[in-house]
Nucleic acid binder design. Sequence first.
DNA 1: GGCCTTGATCTGGCCCTACCAGATTGGTAG
DNA 2: CTACCAATCTGGTAGGGCCAGATCAAGGCC
Lengths: 247, 247
Amino acid sequence: MLTAVSTETSDAVRKTLEYVRHHRLAKGDRLPSERNLSDRFGVTRSSVREALAVLDAMRITERKAKSGIFLRNTPDEGGLDALVLQADLGVTFDAQLTRDAIEARIICEEQAFRLACQRRTEADLAKLHGLLDTYAALAANGRNMADEDVEFHLAVAAASQNRILVRTITPLMLMSTRGRRRYFESAALRQRSLDDHRAFYAAIEARDEAAATALVHSHVYTAAADIWALNEAAAVAQDAGTPDKQT
Amino acid sequence: MLTAVSTETSDAVRKTLEYVRHHRLAKGDRLPSERNLSDRFGVTRSSVREALAVLDAMRITERKAKSGIFLRNTPDEGGLDALVLQADLGVTFDAQLTRDAIEARIICEEQAFRLACQRRTEADLAKLHGLLDTYAALAANGRNMADEDVEFHLAVAAASQNRILVRTITPLMLMSTRGRRRYFESAALRQRSLDDHRAFYAAIEARDEAAATALVHSHVYTAAADIWALNEAAAVAQDAGTPDKQT
DNA sequence: GGCCTTGATCTGGCCCTACCAGATTGGTAG
DNA sequence: CTACCAATCTGGTAGGGCCAGATCAAGGCC
């Protein structure tokens, strides 16, 4: 299930997980030292360290220098996401996957917005209002608001009080970072985005689920489509520069 | 954004990604050799290899033995998911996160089922029918159908023809693997699950979106809640055995 | 006894060399 | 131009070593 071929490293990953399972280690518990795991698994420390690097990257363990290896106690965010990294690296997704991402984002955001209408707290509103102010200021100065756009949408998702939903939407937004940055190079689109965000805020404040739903379908769909179109165009232009050497 | 502290390994990850970006490498392209990257980055091959292990685990690169390191050309599945691994390792999520996961799963599956009704192909129906037969046979023999349950739900998601949705739903289902296995130890629940799956199939075959939506809300909600309850109960029982040593 | 210093030991981070066997490649003979 | 072969390169793995901070128990001090 994990990997097709079995390397010492992937073995070490598997065996480490097995160890944790078998010994019923709980969050915060300490694993044996690298040297211990090394001869316990019958592989070199190098392989163990590679495995731990993987577990570290996905926030399963935490290696504290000169102290030990500990099971993380938080299903925390901050880990790397494959699709996001690939998108960031300029990997060109096929058109279907692009459409899928937009569709999935609309599905998740629509429900997140709906729940945000029901559950938003005053703190959420204040947070969103602050982001909106920043957004307006940037728009007025003709600055690129790509990062703030993501931040706003994630703040709305956070107002749904559903952390899993936030975690789900995050990569769907970050997948289109490149295109989004280009999207905000247009003054007209900056203005439209600002207007839409204001409408989003108003709907959430008024707990107007119908309006929020409609907004997601119109704004997110068109914006996401535009962003992805720009993303693809940039990728194509890039591919022209470095011809694709498929196997 | 990646990691708070800067280690040689995380540096190597970052520098490798930078290299790919800067050199405009496209999918399938080959990266410099480990030894090359090593002295290019000014770190040892060990560190480079740890970084590559991370990139490998998240399906960014592919290391072909005795050949080279290549950028993966598929935003493919199969990578490890942090939440899934943590759930599998028995990390106890707080009750809120559990509710969030159920809610998110219902949101995504409801739409996936709806789309499956619209888009399912004959091949999808055949696939689902085959899974249903297996499911019924297992149920008749009193076998645990936990894995097949996941497989069926993912097959339905696949029938939506949206790969991102499949990718999104997968971890949401696998997060509750432990509880699901216990769930299927009950003969009554096995029967109920079989009945529900048959209803699912019927709704998809008849393209009855309303029925599918209703089923998701009833079946998935109750089943997921039961599964998670068992999950939590097992985790608590386990914690009793190995007391939690919080920092 | 209780508290604090101290030193041996352990640990992760990093570096270095070496060997293996298959993949790759460049050149040579036909 | 093709077929073949040997030098070279590559990732996989092993095993050693050094460093400096963390850890912890022994022993001394009050």
